[in-house]
């Protein structure tokens, strides 16, 4: 029975997200429920959470790029990105994002994962370009459509990153797999693992690319 109680944190997370409570609050409560049901005292629990939060500070380091992006936006970076797209004949949201998907997958496959990203490229460049392309085919965008185009720009960055990076030999996930298998007596070269990422990468490009073309179709109406 105590086994099942440690799953209470998972339940809290699901319920919290469905009810749209503040996620920071939900996460803290989930940690509390999980820790207490596993028999941790309050002080040990706060300490464990504090240590893990401190150890993971590198996750939040990416925010140091915001002053650069903000400064350039002040001088019209987004407007310039839109103007460039407006000059391209035949540019559509779908074609533009398919091009970005390809670049993102290829660069991630070469190990260049932090060259692009949501803060570095999507907010200042890709999203405004996609919006400008949508306006060319669709005319002025209502709020819901504009949000949908922006969401697809963000989604395309994620799909490109996730289904490109594992082709690279020295990426964290490949090293994690190699290490785990070695602990269990199976020795594999990273190349033997990363070639298996190629079929999924191609399928990801086809599936997401197809959906982007469908998005174009829906916008044209």
């Amino acid at each position: 029975m105590t086994d099942w109680l440690v799953l209470s944190g998972i339940l809290l997370v699901v319920v919290g997200f469905v009810l749209r409570l503040n996620p920071l609050l939900v996460v803290a409560l989930a940690a509390l429920a999980t820790g207490l049901s596993a028999g941790l005292g309050p002080v040990a629990l706060v300490s464990a959470f504090g240590k893990a939060f401190n150890d993971n500070r590198y996750v939040s380091v990416i925010w140091i790029v915001l002053p650069v992006i903000g400064l350039l936006e002040r001088y019209g970076l987004q407007q310039r990105a839109r103007a460039l797209v407006a000059k391209l004949r035949g540019a559509t949201v779908g074609r533009l994002l398919i091009g970005y998907l390809l670049i993102r997958q290829l660069s991630a496959a070469l190990g260049l994962t932090s060259v692009a990203g949501q803060a570095q490229t999507v907010r200042p460049l890709v999203a405004p370009m996609a919006e400008a392309a949508a306006e060319q085919t669709h005319g002025a965008l209502d709020d819901a459509t504009r949000d949908r185009v922006r969401a697809f720009a963000a989604a395309t960055d994620n799909v490109g990153l996730f289904f490109g990076e594992d082709i690279f030999l020295a990426i964290a996930s490949i090293l994690l797999i190699k290490g785990f298998l070695e602990q269990n007596g199976i020795v594999l070269a990273p190349l033997q693992l990363s070639v298996w990422a190629i079929p999924s990468a191609i399928l990801a490009f086809l599936i997401h690319g197809g959906r982007l073309l469908l998005l174009d179709r829906r916008l044209r109406r």
Partner: peptide
Amino acid sequence: QMLAALGAVFALA
């Protein structure tokens, strides 16, 4: 960062 810390508590439990 909070979710990474929650993962650590999950692992501990």
